[in-house]
Computed example of a mutant assay.
Amino acid sequence: MKKVVLILCVLSMVFSCKSNKKSSGKLQIVTTTTMITDLVKNIGGDVVDIKGLMGSGVDPHLYKASEGDVTKLANADIIFYNGLHLEGKLVEVFEKMKNKKTIAIANALDKNTLIGSEYFASNYDPHIWFNIDYWLQAGAFVTKTLEVELPEQAETFRKNWESYHAQLVTLKQEISGIIETLPQEKRILVTAHDAFNYFGKSFHFEVVGLQGLSTATEAGVQDVQKLAAFIIENKVNAIFVESSVPKRTIEALQAAVKSKNHEVAIGGTLYSDALGTTATVEGTYIGMYKYNVKTIIEALKASNE
């Protein structure tokens, strides 16, 4: 708590400083999650300067602002974040930043279409990036925001978005074709926490997470035993680790299933709340999505043979 108060005090002092945009010619943008960083980079291109707070493998549910983040936030013209209380530890910081443009990309979406959640203060599942249609809406929203903030580069933003929009549409078509090769009865996705409900809704998977929607909630013995029983009953032969969640929870689940004389394989590691390492294919939203789908389908198909 003391750390949050200190950061807020520092921010209140430095936010009165003039923006860097006029001196550098570029919008100074801060983003929270790696997914948002990738989205804004594709739209902003070379005419914006983007600094992401979170890196590969970082869990946004548990992320706390560091002293090093203060400078990034203070120098930003715009701050893009997910919203829906995904960045739970940063909400208080954002709410106090009255002199800054803090933009929640979830505001681009119709809340009536979101998946409800009793675990988040917003009452919605915040993992919206796994619905590609939502990500298309988010991209259009970011584009309009940048056009307003830097109108002299509006044409650049529009052209960048047109190109990336086409790539996202192609992504949806490609993965839809891959998923169609998996029988409906085999579309059961068991992961460390419930990050994939929008994916499941989009592509007709039953999704079950051990820790619920937030990794801040620990899975208990009863949760493990209940899910182990579900796996056995539904003959699920592959479960998945997540890159931003300790694998011990899934390993405990695997052990619980084995103790009941049933084998379940760990089908691979999925990217859920963060992209892969920078400069790798999985370090982009499109690459991450393709990797996840390939990993899921191959593991569940193997269990079918």
Rank of each mutant, 00 (worst) to 15 (best):
V5H: 09
L6E: 15
I7C: 01
C9M: 06
V10M: 14
L11E: 07
S12T: 10
M13C: 09
F15A: 04
S19Q: 04
K21Q: 10
S23H: 01
K26V: 05
L27R: 02
I29E: 08
I29P: 04
I29Q: 05
T33Y: 08
T37V: 03
D38I: 05
L39W: 03
G45I: 09
D46A: 13
V47E: 11
L53P: 04
L53R: 05
G55D: 10
G55Y: 07
S56I: 00
S56L: 00
H61M: 08
L62I: 14
S66H: 11
E67N: 13
D69M: 07
D69K: 05
K72R: 12
L73E: 03
A74T: 09
N75V: 03
A76M: 07
A76P: 06
F80A: 05
Y81S: 11
L86Y: 09
L86M: 13
E87W: 03
K89W: 06
V91E: 15
V93G: 03
K96C: 02
K98W: 00
T102R: 07
A104Q: 10
I105N: 02
N107V: 05
L109E: 11
L109V: 11
S117V: 12
Y119M: 13
Y119K: 15
N123E: 15
Y124N: 12
W129I: 12
W129E: 14
W129Q: 11
N131M: 13
L136K: 12
Q137H: 15
F141H: 08
V142R: 07
K144E: 14
T145C: 11
T145Q: 11
L146T: 08
V148W: 00
L150D: 14
L150H: 12
P151C: 08
E152M: 03
Q153M: 08
Q153C: 01
E155Y: 01
E155H: 06
F157H: 09
N160A: 10
Q167K: 15
L168P: 09
T170A: 13
K172H: 12
I175A: 06
I175H: 07
G177P: 00
I178Y: 01
E180L: 14
P183W: 02
P183R: 02
E185W: 00
L189I: 03
F199C: 05
G200C: 08
G200A: 06
K201F: 03
F205A: 05
V207H: 10
V208E: 06
A216K: 13
T217P: 00
E218P: 01
V221F: 01
Q225A: 05
A228V: 02
A228H: 04
A228Y: 04
A229V: 01
A229G: 14
F230K: 14
N234F: 00
V241P: 00
V241T: 09
V241S: 03
E242D: 02
E251F: 10
A252I: 09
A252F: 04
A252T: 14
A255I: 00
A265R: 07
A265T: 09
L275Q: 10
L275M: 08
A279Q: 14
T280Q: 11
G287L: 08
K290E: 13
K294R: 14
K294P: 05
K294C: 01
T295P: 12
T295N: 12
L300H: 04
N304Q: 15
E305K: 15
